[in-house]
Every structure is written in C-alpha cells, then in structure tokens.
Design a protein around this nucleic acid. Structure first.
Lengths: 206, 206
DNA sequence: GTCTATAGGATGATAGAC
DNA sequence: GTCTATCATCCTATAGAC
C-alpha cells in the first residue's frame, strides 16, 4: 500500500514505539498537505492505526503537529551536528552540511513540515513554536558551525529555495519548456549523487 | 474593523470591481491561513460581502485560490518589470528589483499566498498552477532581467528566505534571545527605509 | 494498547428571494 | 448584483468496549 512508514500494522507495540511510528507518518502527511489540510485520519492510515488512537496518543491534532515539528527540527539539528563532527578534511564544513541537508530528503516531508510551520506565524500556538525552531537553526549556524551572519543568511536562503523546489514537486513536471530543468539543476550541485532518486515527485501524494 | 481591503461595504459595485476587491481580500486571507486553512467566509468577511456571493462569483474555493495566485504572480511580475524599466543609472538592476520585492510587502499576503501555493505541489490542480507561476518568475530573471543561472538562483533564494521570515512573523516576537533580531536585520539591508513599518506582525491575523 | 461508534461543530456549495 | 436560509459533507474529539 501507499503508507510510507507502516511497520507490521497488526502488531501490538509499546506506546513509545507507536509514538515514533505515528510521528514519522505525521511528518510525511503534514509535509504534503500542511497543518490544516492533513487530517488525523490521513496520519492514522499512513501509520496503520485508527484515527481516534492517534488523537488519544497525542491529545489533539495541534499537539501532534507540534510534536512532528519538534521531531523534524531535532532530526535536522542532529544530522547537522553529525556532519559537523565527521572531521572530513577533504570536504569543507559548509559542503558537508549542505550534503546532509539534501540527504535528509529521504525522510519524507521533513523539510516541508518545517516550511508549512514557518508559514503559520500568525497562529497563536504554532507561530511561537515555529519561530523557536527557526531560531534554533540560525543559532546552530552562528554558534556551532561558526558562520558569520552573512554566510548564515546565504546558507539559510539556499535551504529555503530547496524547500520550495521540493514543495513544488518540480522534478518531473516542468510545464512547457526546459528552463525549469535548468533551474532545478542549478539548485542541486551535480556533485550530489542520487538526488533525483530521493526527491518526491508530483504524483506522490506524500 | 479588521478587514484589510473593505471599501464602502454597502455600495453596489460592478462585477469587475467586486472581483478585484474580493481578490485583494483573498490574497490577504490565503496568505495568512493557507489554502485549506482559510475559509470562504473569512474572505467574504474581509471583503465585506456574503460567503455565498464569493462562491458565486468565483465558482469554487479552488478557483478563487487559483485566481488569487494568478493575480499575485501578475502583480509581482508587473512590479518587477516596472523596476527594470525605471532606468535609474544610480541603482543597479538587482538592487532595484530587490527593493521592489520588499515594497510589495504592502500588498498583504502576496508573498505568502505564493509560498503556500509552492508547498502544495502534490495537489492535482494547485500543484501544476504553482509550478507554472514559479517558472514564470524564473524566466523573468533569466530572460528579462538578464541574470545568469547562478545569479537567478541566488536571487530567488534570498526571496524565499524573505518569504519565510515574513511568514514566521519574526519581527516583534523573537523568543528568548537577540540572535533572531540579528537574523532579521541581516535579511533586510538597512538601506531599505521603513521595512519595519510594512512587515506584518505576529498579532496581525491577516 | 487499540478499536468501533458516534456526537458535535465547522464549512463549501446550492436554492431561491429581492 | 447580492443576500438569507439551509443541506450535505467532512473532521476532530469523546465514550466506551475488548
């Protein structure tokens, strides 16, 4: 089936295992449909559980989204820190972080769940959480990676553009000309191996 | 009241005038809440008309969103072309376009309506429209402004970062430290006059 | 730990009057 | 050109059994 993260739907798991599983599904589903557009039933189906159980475990759709956003942000920062720590003298720091960011596309919906949150700044609950998460990333670049403000800004900007191209599902549907292909290529350095195999397509609902 | 675009709510207007008025409201509302999150009643209230009338004029919520997206994209390109044409030798092309982009923040929700659309790539109707609109902007940079691919990409990236900071409503609520203030400043060159007066705040619902 | 059944509240769209 | 009234659908959340 099309569920992105289902693992042995029939089994009885610990609450902790289920949480993880549902969070994965939530990131995929929220990423594709957004906070309001995604239903708790979408998430439940993707995780292979019932809709009321999702609500039961997380309390509300809002809490579920906050948990998914927190999880995505944590995973992003963890991956960045790994890239920073892997003291590969061959490859400069910024290059390693950029590669890590693109590799993270394997986690379906991660970039887009964050992007959706970043667009909801006027939401009374999600807004503040989104601002906190975004600030965490900024501080990583400044304090941990050692970028100056300009470098950090440029880096973040490229990241937001990547998120946009991913959200647009730009890969296989580029209207009536080739300029979009050029655009897409110029965003993903050709040195990166299999980008095209991990980028979500327009016919992929999640 | 809080309606962003209400003009003489009681008057009887031509269909064309009403369309314009409702489109303005739709851009503001969709920008703040997203395609799914915004209701046709939100738009109606912001425009000072009844909810069924909004649906009547545009056929459906989906068509209304497509119209709003098209309108926003048109206005963006028109503004860019104006900036390009104003042959001000003092200021280089890219600087003029950047300034025009920031000035467009006066049109509430314009940047964010586009950003929301760009996140809905897997939507069967909105996805293709969003890809077309984005490609139009890319082609403007390449074919009309004369940027090379690298320059166009960098420019687009900075734009997406600006959209993000606007969507986050980052201006007046920056959590627990000053790093966010720094981040915000580094995105908006201080040469720009009154950015802070036209940027939407976190307590502004639209 | 997990499900079925369902209440209750929006919300998009239609019918029809003025 | 514009409104009021209303239907039908969808969706979150709760109740309660196993």
């Amino acid at each position: 089936m099309s569920s992105p993260v289902t693992a042995d739907p029939g089994r009885r798991l610990s609450s902790e295992e289920r949480r993880e599983q549902i969070l994965r599904a939530a990131i995929a589903v929220f990423g594709a449909r957004g906070y309001v557009g995604a239903t708790t039933d979408d998430v439940a189906k993707a995780a292979g559980v019932s809709q009321p159980y999702v609500v039961r475990l997380f309390g509300s759709k809002e809490s579920l989204f906050l948990a998914a956003l927190g999880d995505a942000t944590d995973e992003l920062l963890r991956t960045f820190r790994e890239a920073l720590a892997s003291d590969d003298a061959e490859v400069p720091i910024d290059k390693r972080i950029a590669t890590a960011y693109v590799d993270l596309l394997r986690v379906r919906g991660l970039h887009q769940t964050m992007s959706h949150a970043y667009l909801l700044g006027s939401h009374p609950v999600i807004g503040p959480a989104a601002r906190r998460g975004f600030a965490q990333v900024w501080r990583f670049f400044r304090d941990e990676a050692g970028f100056d403000a300009d470098k950090a800004r440029a880096f973040l900007a490229e990241g937001m553009l990547i998120n946009t191209m991913i959200g647009l599902r730009l890969v296989d549907d580029y209207g009536d000309d080739e300029s979009v292909t050029e655009m897409f290529r110029s965003c993903f350095p050709s040195t990166l191996p299999d980008v095209l195999t991990i980028v979500p397509r327009s016919d992929d609902p999640w």
